[in-house]
Design a protein around this nucleic acid. Structure first.
Lengths: 196, 196
DNA sequence: TTACCGATTGACTGGTCAGTCAGATGAACC
DNA sequence: GGTTCATCTGACTGACCAGTCAATCGGTAA
Protein backbone atom coordinates (compact mmCIF):
# COMPACT_ATOMS: atom_id res chain seq x y z
CA UNK A 1 0.00 0.00 0.00
CA UNK A 2 1.82 3.08 -1.22
CA UNK A 3 0.91 6.75 -1.07
CA UNK A 4 0.62 6.72 -4.86
CA UNK A 5 -1.83 3.99 -5.88
CA UNK A 6 -3.53 1.08 -4.20
CA UNK A 7 -2.89 -1.67 -6.72
CA UNK A 8 -5.33 -4.06 -5.07
CA UNK A 9 -8.13 -1.56 -5.60
CA UNK A 10 -6.91 -0.96 -9.12
CA UNK A 11 -7.23 -4.67 -9.85
CA UNK A 12 -10.69 -4.90 -8.33
CA UNK A 13 -11.94 -1.93 -10.35
CA UNK A 14 -10.45 -3.33 -13.53
CA UNK A 15 -12.01 -6.72 -12.82
CA UNK A 16 -15.47 -5.17 -12.54
CA UNK A 17 -15.12 -3.59 -15.94
CA UNK A 18 -13.83 -6.78 -17.52
CA UNK A 19 -16.44 -9.03 -15.90
CA UNK A 20 -19.19 -6.65 -16.98
CA UNK A 21 -17.89 -6.47 -20.53
CA UNK A 22 -16.90 -10.09 -21.19
CA UNK A 23 -18.44 -12.15 -18.43
CA UNK A 24 -16.65 -13.98 -15.65
CA UNK A 25 -16.17 -17.30 -17.41
CA UNK A 26 -15.29 -15.83 -20.78
CA UNK A 27 -12.60 -13.40 -19.65
CA UNK A 28 -8.99 -14.29 -18.91
CA UNK A 29 -7.04 -13.25 -15.85
CA UNK A 30 -4.62 -11.56 -18.24
CA UNK A 31 -7.51 -9.34 -19.41
CA UNK A 32 -7.92 -8.11 -15.86
CA UNK A 33 -4.19 -7.48 -15.48
CA UNK A 34 -4.07 -5.60 -18.80
CA UNK A 35 -7.12 -3.52 -17.93
CA UNK A 36 -5.51 -2.61 -14.60
CA UNK A 37 -2.21 -1.83 -16.31
CA UNK A 38 -0.45 -4.27 -14.04
CA UNK A 39 1.65 -7.41 -14.47
CA UNK A 40 -0.14 -10.73 -14.65
CA UNK A 41 1.53 -12.08 -11.52
CA UNK A 42 0.46 -9.16 -9.38
CA UNK A 43 -3.14 -10.30 -9.57
CA UNK A 44 -2.06 -13.46 -7.77
CA UNK A 45 -0.10 -11.44 -5.26
CA UNK A 46 -3.31 -9.87 -4.05
CA UNK A 47 -5.85 -12.61 -4.78
CA UNK A 48 -5.52 -16.37 -4.48
CA UNK A 49 -7.75 -17.04 -7.47
CA UNK A 50 -9.91 -15.52 -10.16
CA UNK A 51 -13.03 -16.51 -8.29
CA UNK A 52 -11.92 -14.77 -5.13
CA UNK A 53 -11.93 -11.49 -7.05
CA UNK A 54 -15.58 -12.02 -7.96
CA UNK A 55 -16.40 -12.98 -4.37
CA UNK A 56 -14.72 -9.85 -3.06
CA UNK A 57 -16.59 -7.59 -5.46
CA UNK A 58 -19.89 -9.20 -4.59
CA UNK A 59 -19.38 -9.03 -0.83
CA UNK A 60 -18.23 -5.39 -0.83
CA UNK A 61 -21.49 -4.28 -2.39
CA UNK A 62 -23.84 -6.82 -0.89
CA UNK A 63 -22.75 -5.99 2.64
CA UNK A 64 -23.61 -2.35 1.96
CA UNK A 65 -26.99 -3.55 0.76
CA UNK A 66 -27.62 -5.63 3.88
CA UNK A 67 -26.63 -2.65 6.03
CA UNK A 68 -29.05 -0.44 4.12
CA UNK A 69 -31.87 -2.93 4.59
CA UNK A 70 -31.19 -3.21 8.30
CA UNK A 71 -30.99 0.58 8.69
CA UNK A 72 -34.26 1.00 6.85
CA UNK A 73 -35.94 -1.65 8.93
CA UNK A 74 -34.83 -0.09 12.22
CA UNK A 75 -35.62 3.46 11.12
CA UNK A 76 -38.66 5.32 12.42
CA UNK A 77 -40.46 5.54 9.10
CA UNK A 78 -43.63 4.40 7.40
CA UNK A 79 -43.21 0.92 5.84
CA UNK A 80 -43.52 2.42 2.41
CA UNK A 81 -40.66 4.80 3.11
CA UNK A 82 -38.53 1.92 4.28
CA UNK A 83 -39.05 0.07 1.02
CA UNK A 84 -38.41 3.34 -0.77
CA UNK A 85 -35.00 3.65 0.86
CA UNK A 86 -34.00 0.19 -0.25
CA UNK A 87 -35.22 0.66 -3.79
CA UNK A 88 -33.42 3.99 -3.95
CA UNK A 89 -30.19 2.48 -2.67
CA UNK A 90 -30.18 -0.21 -5.35
CA UNK A 91 -31.15 2.17 -8.13
CA UNK A 92 -28.46 4.62 -7.00
CA UNK A 93 -25.94 1.77 -6.85
CA UNK A 94 -26.66 1.09 -10.48
CA UNK A 95 -26.58 4.76 -11.36
CA UNK A 96 -23.22 5.24 -9.65
CA UNK A 97 -21.58 2.05 -10.90
CA UNK A 98 -23.64 0.03 -13.36
CA UNK A 99 -20.83 -2.46 -13.93
CA UNK A 100 -20.78 -3.64 -10.33
CA UNK A 101 -24.52 -4.20 -10.29
CA UNK A 102 -24.39 -5.91 -13.65
CA UNK A 103 -21.76 -8.33 -12.40
CA UNK A 104 -23.71 -9.01 -9.21
CA UNK A 105 -26.99 -9.62 -11.00
CA UNK A 106 -25.62 -11.56 -13.94
CA UNK A 107 -22.67 -13.48 -12.52
CA UNK A 108 -23.42 -13.93 -8.82
CA UNK A 109 -27.13 -13.83 -8.00
CA UNK A 110 -28.06 -15.98 -10.99
CA UNK A 111 -25.10 -18.29 -10.69
CA UNK A 112 -25.40 -18.83 -6.94
CA UNK A 113 -27.17 -22.10 -7.67
CA UNK A 114 -24.34 -23.78 -9.49
CA UNK A 115 -21.46 -22.83 -7.20
CA UNK A 116 -20.86 -20.63 -4.14
CA UNK A 117 -23.29 -22.09 -1.63
CA UNK A 118 -21.92 -19.42 0.71
CA UNK A 119 -23.50 -16.65 -1.26
CA UNK A 120 -26.94 -18.21 -1.25
CA UNK A 121 -27.09 -17.60 2.48
CA UNK A 122 -26.04 -13.97 2.14
CA UNK A 123 -28.54 -13.41 -0.63
CA UNK A 124 -31.31 -14.89 1.49
CA UNK A 125 -30.40 -12.49 4.28
CA UNK A 126 -31.52 -9.66 2.05
CA UNK A 127 -34.89 -11.27 1.40
CA UNK A 128 -35.33 -11.96 5.07
CA UNK A 129 -34.49 -8.39 6.03
CA UNK A 130 -37.08 -7.07 3.62
CA UNK A 131 -39.56 -9.69 4.81
CA UNK A 132 -39.12 -8.44 8.37
CA UNK A 133 -40.09 -4.95 7.24
CA UNK A 134 -43.23 -6.38 5.68
CA UNK A 135 -44.05 -8.37 8.81
CA UNK A 136 -43.79 -5.28 10.97
CA UNK A 137 -46.06 -3.41 8.60
CA UNK A 138 -48.54 -6.27 8.73
CA UNK A 139 -48.46 -6.27 12.52
CA UNK A 140 -49.42 -2.59 12.59
CA UNK A 141 -52.07 -3.15 9.93
CA UNK A 142 -50.45 -0.97 7.29
CA UNK A 143 -49.97 -3.94 4.95
CA UNK A 144 -52.48 -6.73 4.30
CA UNK A 145 -51.95 -9.74 6.51
CA UNK A 146 -52.94 -12.36 3.94
CA UNK A 147 -49.71 -12.12 1.96
CA UNK A 148 -46.71 -14.20 3.00
CA UNK A 149 -44.00 -11.74 4.05
CA UNK A 150 -41.15 -13.64 2.39
CA UNK A 151 -43.17 -13.84 -0.80
CA UNK A 152 -43.76 -10.10 -0.69
CA UNK A 153 -40.03 -9.56 -0.20
CA UNK A 154 -39.33 -11.70 -3.24
CA UNK A 155 -41.81 -9.72 -5.29
CA UNK A 156 -40.08 -6.51 -4.26
CA UNK A 157 -36.56 -7.72 -4.89
CA UNK A 158 -37.61 -9.50 -8.08
CA UNK A 159 -39.03 -6.32 -9.49
CA UNK A 160 -35.94 -4.31 -8.62
CA UNK A 161 -33.66 -6.91 -10.18
CA UNK A 162 -35.84 -7.02 -13.28
CA UNK A 163 -35.54 -3.28 -13.67
CA UNK A 164 -31.75 -3.54 -13.48
CA UNK A 165 -31.81 -6.42 -15.97
CA UNK A 166 -33.81 -4.26 -18.32
CA UNK A 167 -31.27 -1.45 -18.08
CA UNK A 168 -28.44 -3.93 -18.58
CA UNK A 169 -30.10 -5.40 -21.68
CA UNK A 170 -30.85 -2.07 -23.26
CA UNK A 171 -27.21 -1.05 -22.84
CA UNK A 172 -28.03 2.62 -23.46
CA UNK A 173 -27.69 5.52 -21.05
CA UNK A 174 -30.53 5.91 -18.57
CA UNK A 175 -31.70 9.46 -17.92
CA UNK A 176 -31.80 11.09 -14.49
CA UNK A 177 -35.58 11.40 -14.76
CA UNK A 178 -35.91 7.71 -15.53
CA UNK A 179 -33.96 6.82 -12.38
CA UNK A 180 -36.18 8.99 -10.21
CA UNK A 181 -39.38 7.87 -11.87
CA UNK A 182 -38.56 4.17 -11.52
CA UNK A 183 -37.55 4.50 -7.87
CA UNK A 184 -41.06 5.67 -7.06
CA UNK A 185 -42.79 3.34 -9.50
CA UNK A 186 -41.23 0.27 -7.87
CA UNK A 187 -42.68 1.01 -4.46
CA UNK A 188 -45.99 2.15 -5.90
CA UNK A 189 -46.30 -1.06 -7.87
CA UNK A 190 -45.56 -3.27 -4.88
CA UNK A 191 -47.88 -1.40 -2.53
CA UNK A 192 -50.83 -0.65 -4.73
CA UNK A 193 -50.74 -3.11 -7.65
CA UNK A 194 -52.47 -2.89 -10.98
CA UNK A 195 -56.15 -2.99 -10.14
CA UNK A 196 -57.90 0.26 -11.04
CA UNK B 1 -34.09 -41.36 -36.56
CA UNK B 2 -34.88 -44.97 -35.77
CA UNK B 3 -38.00 -46.59 -34.42
CA UNK B 4 -36.08 -47.35 -31.23
CA UNK B 5 -34.64 -44.10 -29.88
CA UNK B 6 -34.24 -40.55 -31.08
CA UNK B 7 -30.62 -39.91 -30.16
CA UNK B 8 -30.88 -36.21 -30.79
CA UNK B 9 -33.62 -35.94 -28.19
CA UNK B 10 -31.60 -38.15 -25.87
CA UNK B 11 -28.68 -35.74 -26.10
CA UNK B 12 -30.87 -32.69 -25.51
CA UNK B 13 -32.45 -34.24 -22.43
CA UNK B 14 -29.07 -35.28 -21.08
CA UNK B 15 -27.72 -31.79 -21.69
CA UNK B 16 -30.51 -30.22 -19.65
CA UNK B 17 -29.65 -32.41 -16.69
CA UNK B 18 -25.94 -31.72 -17.00
CA UNK B 19 -26.35 -27.95 -17.48
CA UNK B 20 -28.68 -27.80 -14.49
CA UNK B 21 -26.31 -29.81 -12.30
CA UNK B 22 -22.93 -28.37 -13.29
CA UNK B 23 -23.62 -25.19 -15.19
CA UNK B 24 -23.01 -24.56 -18.87
CA UNK B 25 -19.49 -23.21 -18.59
CA UNK B 26 -18.33 -25.73 -16.03
CA UNK B 27 -19.49 -28.91 -17.74
CA UNK B 28 -17.68 -30.71 -20.54
CA UNK B 29 -19.24 -31.97 -23.74
CA UNK B 30 -18.09 -35.43 -22.70
CA UNK B 31 -20.30 -35.09 -19.59
CA UNK B 32 -23.29 -34.64 -21.87
CA UNK B 33 -22.30 -37.62 -24.02
CA UNK B 34 -21.79 -39.80 -20.92
CA UNK B 35 -25.10 -38.71 -19.42
CA UNK B 36 -26.84 -39.58 -22.69
CA UNK B 37 -25.00 -42.91 -22.91
CA UNK B 38 -23.71 -41.96 -26.33
CA UNK B 39 -20.31 -41.58 -27.96
CA UNK B 40 -18.63 -38.20 -27.74
CA UNK B 41 -18.62 -37.67 -31.48
CA UNK B 42 -22.34 -38.22 -31.85
CA UNK B 43 -23.01 -34.97 -30.05
CA UNK B 44 -21.26 -33.21 -32.92
CA UNK B 45 -23.18 -35.24 -35.46
CA UNK B 46 -26.38 -33.64 -34.24
CA UNK B 47 -25.17 -30.24 -33.02
CA UNK B 48 -22.49 -27.98 -34.47
CA UNK B 49 -21.38 -26.76 -31.06
CA UNK B 50 -21.97 -26.92 -27.32
CA UNK B 51 -23.60 -23.52 -27.42
CA UNK B 52 -26.11 -24.61 -30.06
CA UNK B 53 -27.41 -27.21 -27.63
CA UNK B 54 -28.14 -24.50 -25.09
CA UNK B 55 -29.75 -22.33 -27.75
CA UNK B 56 -31.96 -25.20 -28.87
CA UNK B 57 -33.11 -25.95 -25.34
CA UNK B 58 -33.89 -22.32 -24.71
CA UNK B 59 -35.82 -21.80 -27.93
CA UNK B 60 -37.90 -24.96 -27.57
CA UNK B 61 -39.29 -23.78 -24.25
CA UNK B 62 -39.34 -20.05 -24.90
CA UNK B 63 -41.37 -20.45 -28.07
CA UNK B 64 -43.98 -22.36 -26.07
CA UNK B 65 -43.98 -19.49 -23.64
CA UNK B 66 -44.44 -16.86 -26.34
CA UNK B 67 -47.31 -18.92 -27.79
CA UNK B 68 -48.93 -19.13 -24.36
CA UNK B 69 -48.65 -15.39 -23.88
CA UNK B 70 -50.15 -14.69 -27.28
CA UNK B 71 -52.98 -17.19 -26.68
CA UNK B 72 -53.74 -15.62 -23.32
CA UNK B 73 -53.73 -12.14 -24.81
CA UNK B 74 -56.11 -13.06 -27.61
CA UNK B 75 -58.42 -15.08 -25.36
CA UNK B 76 -61.79 -13.78 -24.27
CA UNK B 77 -60.96 -13.51 -20.58
CA UNK B 78 -60.66 -10.96 -17.82
CA UNK B 79 -57.13 -9.45 -17.74
CA UNK B 80 -56.50 -11.09 -14.42
CA UNK B 81 -57.30 -14.51 -15.89
CA UNK B 82 -54.93 -13.83 -18.75
CA UNK B 83 -52.08 -13.15 -16.35
CA UNK B 84 -53.17 -16.21 -14.40
CA UNK B 85 -52.75 -18.40 -17.46
CA UNK B 86 -49.22 -17.17 -18.03
CA UNK B 87 -48.20 -17.56 -14.40
CA UNK B 88 -49.69 -21.05 -14.38
CA UNK B 89 -47.85 -22.00 -17.54
CA UNK B 90 -44.48 -21.00 -16.12
CA UNK B 91 -45.12 -22.61 -12.74
CA UNK B 92 -46.28 -25.80 -14.46
CA UNK B 93 -43.20 -25.71 -16.68
CA UNK B 94 -41.08 -25.73 -13.57
CA UNK B 95 -43.19 -28.40 -11.96
CA UNK B 96 -42.94 -30.63 -15.02
CA UNK B 97 -39.27 -30.07 -15.73
CA UNK B 98 -37.42 -27.95 -13.18
CA UNK B 99 -34.07 -28.50 -14.91
CA UNK B 100 -35.14 -26.79 -18.12
CA UNK B 101 -36.42 -23.76 -16.27
CA UNK B 102 -33.32 -23.64 -14.12
CA UNK B 103 -31.10 -23.62 -17.18
CA UNK B 104 -33.18 -20.92 -18.83
CA UNK B 105 -33.23 -18.68 -15.78
CA UNK B 106 -29.60 -19.20 -14.81
CA UNK B 107 -27.68 -19.72 -18.05
CA UNK B 108 -29.60 -18.00 -20.81
CA UNK B 109 -30.34 -14.73 -19.10
CA UNK B 110 -26.69 -14.62 -18.16
CA UNK B 111 -25.53 -15.44 -21.66
CA UNK B 112 -27.90 -12.88 -23.15
CA UNK B 113 -25.63 -10.12 -21.85
CA UNK B 114 -22.28 -11.46 -22.93
CA UNK B 115 -23.22 -12.93 -26.30
CA UNK B 116 -26.43 -14.12 -27.96
CA UNK B 117 -27.95 -10.78 -28.83
CA UNK B 118 -30.63 -12.80 -30.61
CA UNK B 119 -32.01 -14.07 -27.36
CA UNK B 120 -32.41 -10.62 -25.87
CA UNK B 121 -34.89 -9.88 -28.62
CA UNK B 122 -36.86 -13.06 -27.97
CA UNK B 123 -36.87 -12.41 -24.26
CA UNK B 124 -38.16 -8.91 -24.85
CA UNK B 125 -40.98 -10.32 -26.95
CA UNK B 126 -42.31 -11.98 -23.83
CA UNK B 127 -42.31 -8.69 -21.91
CA UNK B 128 -44.00 -6.95 -24.79
CA UNK B 129 -46.68 -9.60 -25.05
CA UNK B 130 -47.49 -9.25 -21.39
CA UNK B 131 -47.36 -5.47 -21.69
CA UNK B 132 -50.00 -5.65 -24.43
CA UNK B 133 -52.31 -7.50 -22.09
CA UNK B 134 -51.82 -4.75 -19.53
CA UNK B 135 -52.45 -2.05 -22.11
CA UNK B 136 -55.72 -3.65 -23.17
CA UNK B 137 -56.79 -3.87 -19.54
CA UNK B 138 -55.92 -0.21 -19.07
CA UNK B 139 -57.91 0.74 -22.14
CA UNK B 140 -61.02 -0.91 -20.71
CA UNK B 141 -60.38 0.61 -17.31
CA UNK B 142 -59.78 -2.65 -15.48
CA UNK B 143 -56.18 -1.71 -14.65
CA UNK B 144 -54.95 1.70 -13.52
CA UNK B 145 -53.76 3.88 -16.37
CA UNK B 146 -50.93 5.59 -14.47
CA UNK B 147 -48.60 2.58 -14.59
CA UNK B 148 -46.33 2.06 -17.58
CA UNK B 149 -47.46 -1.17 -19.24
CA UNK B 150 -43.95 -2.45 -19.95
CA UNK B 151 -42.98 -1.72 -16.37
CA UNK B 152 -45.97 -3.69 -15.15
CA UNK B 153 -44.97 -6.56 -17.40
CA UNK B 154 -41.49 -6.49 -15.91
CA UNK B 155 -42.90 -6.56 -12.41
CA UNK B 156 -44.99 -9.57 -13.31
CA UNK B 157 -42.21 -11.50 -15.01
CA UNK B 158 -39.69 -10.46 -12.36
CA UNK B 159 -41.85 -11.87 -9.62
CA UNK B 160 -42.40 -15.14 -11.46
CA UNK B 161 -38.67 -15.52 -12.12
CA UNK B 162 -37.90 -14.72 -8.50
CA UNK B 163 -40.25 -17.45 -7.37
CA UNK B 164 -38.46 -19.94 -9.61
CA UNK B 165 -35.10 -18.73 -8.33
CA UNK B 166 -36.30 -19.32 -4.80
CA UNK B 167 -37.32 -22.89 -5.63
CA UNK B 168 -33.99 -23.46 -7.38
CA UNK B 169 -32.11 -22.14 -4.33
CA UNK B 170 -33.96 -24.24 -1.83
CA UNK B 171 -33.24 -27.35 -3.89
CA UNK B 172 -35.89 -29.35 -2.04
CA UNK B 173 -39.10 -30.78 -3.43
CA UNK B 174 -41.96 -28.31 -3.75
CA UNK B 175 -45.38 -29.60 -2.71
CA UNK B 176 -48.42 -29.64 -4.98
CA UNK B 177 -50.19 -27.22 -2.62
CA UNK B 178 -47.27 -24.80 -2.80
CA UNK B 179 -47.44 -24.77 -6.60
CA UNK B 180 -51.17 -24.01 -6.57
CA UNK B 181 -50.90 -21.45 -3.80
CA UNK B 182 -48.07 -19.55 -5.49
CA UNK B 183 -49.79 -19.49 -8.86
CA UNK B 184 -52.65 -17.51 -7.32
CA UNK B 185 -50.43 -15.43 -5.05
CA UNK B 186 -48.41 -14.13 -7.99
CA UNK B 187 -51.42 -12.65 -9.76
CA UNK B 188 -52.95 -11.41 -6.52
CA UNK B 189 -49.72 -9.64 -5.63
CA UNK B 190 -49.40 -7.94 -9.00
CA UNK B 191 -53.03 -6.86 -9.15
CA UNK B 192 -53.71 -5.81 -5.59
CA UNK B 193 -50.34 -5.05 -3.95
CA UNK B 194 -49.45 -4.87 -0.30
CA UNK B 195 -51.48 -1.93 0.97
CA UNK B 196 -54.09 -3.02 3.51
C1' DT C 1 -24.00 -60.74 -52.46
C1' DT C 2 -22.50 -56.22 -52.94
C1' DA C 3 -22.78 -51.42 -52.85
C1' DC C 4 -24.23 -47.48 -50.54
C1' DC C 5 -24.91 -44.18 -46.88
C1' DG C 6 -26.35 -42.25 -42.67
C1' DA C 7 -25.50 -43.28 -37.81
C1' DT C 8 -22.08 -44.08 -34.50
C1' DT C 9 -17.56 -44.51 -32.33
C1' DG C 10 -13.60 -42.58 -29.55
C1' DA C 11 -8.70 -41.41 -30.07
C1' DC C 12 -6.42 -37.38 -31.15
C1' DT C 13 -5.05 -32.38 -31.84
C1' DG C 14 -4.42 -27.63 -31.31
C1' DG C 15 -5.21 -23.97 -28.64
C1' DT C 16 -6.31 -21.88 -24.36
C1' DC C 17 -5.50 -20.34 -19.73
C1' DA C 18 -5.31 -20.55 -14.47
C1' DG C 19 -1.95 -20.57 -11.50
C1' DT C 20 3.42 -20.89 -10.42
C1' DC C 21 7.89 -19.30 -9.69
C1' DA C 22 12.40 -17.39 -9.97
C1' DG C 23 13.97 -13.29 -10.12
C1' DA C 24 13.89 -7.79 -10.57
C1' DT C 25 12.89 -3.38 -8.40
C1' DG C 26 12.97 -0.04 -5.05
C1' DA C 27 12.02 1.92 -0.51
C1' DA C 28 13.52 2.14 4.25
C1' DC C 29 16.82 1.60 7.50
C1' DC C 30 21.53 0.84 9.35
C1' DG D 1 27.52 0.48 0.72
C1' DG D 2 24.75 -3.25 2.22
C1' DT D 3 20.70 -5.80 3.98
C1' DT D 4 15.87 -6.76 4.17
C1' DC D 5 11.36 -7.19 2.68
C1' DA D 6 7.25 -6.16 0.32
C1' DT D 7 5.92 -5.17 -4.19
C1' DC D 8 6.04 -6.31 -8.72
C1' DT D 9 7.25 -8.77 -13.23
C1' DG D 10 6.12 -11.95 -17.12
C1' DA D 11 7.72 -16.30 -19.10
C1' DC D 12 6.47 -20.83 -18.38
C1' DT D 13 3.86 -25.24 -17.39
C1' DG D 14 0.56 -28.61 -16.83
C1' DA D 15 -4.05 -29.57 -17.30
C1' DC D 16 -8.06 -29.25 -19.64
C1' DC D 17 -11.32 -29.52 -23.38
C1' DA D 18 -13.98 -28.11 -27.77
C1' DG D 19 -14.09 -29.72 -31.93
C1' DT D 20 -12.14 -33.05 -35.83
C1' DC D 21 -11.78 -37.13 -38.38
C1' DA D 22 -10.86 -41.67 -40.01
C1' DA D 23 -12.80 -45.86 -39.15
C1' DT D 24 -16.71 -49.04 -38.12
C1' DC D 25 -21.47 -50.46 -37.88
C1' DG D 26 -25.93 -51.71 -39.60
C1' DG D 27 -29.91 -51.01 -42.36
C1' DT D 28 -31.76 -50.94 -47.16
C1' DA D 29 -32.16 -51.67 -51.81
C1' DA D 30 -30.56 -53.45 -56.25
Amino acid sequence: MSATVDKRRLILDAAVRVFARQGFHTCRVSDIADEAGVAYGLVYHYFPSKETILDTLFLERWNLMLATIEDARAADLAPREKLQRIASFIVESYRHDPDVMKVIVVEVTRAANTFGRTHVERIMQAYEGIARIVEQAQATGVFRRDVDALFAAQAFYGLVEQVLTQWIFSAGEVSAEEFERIKLAIVEMICVGLDG
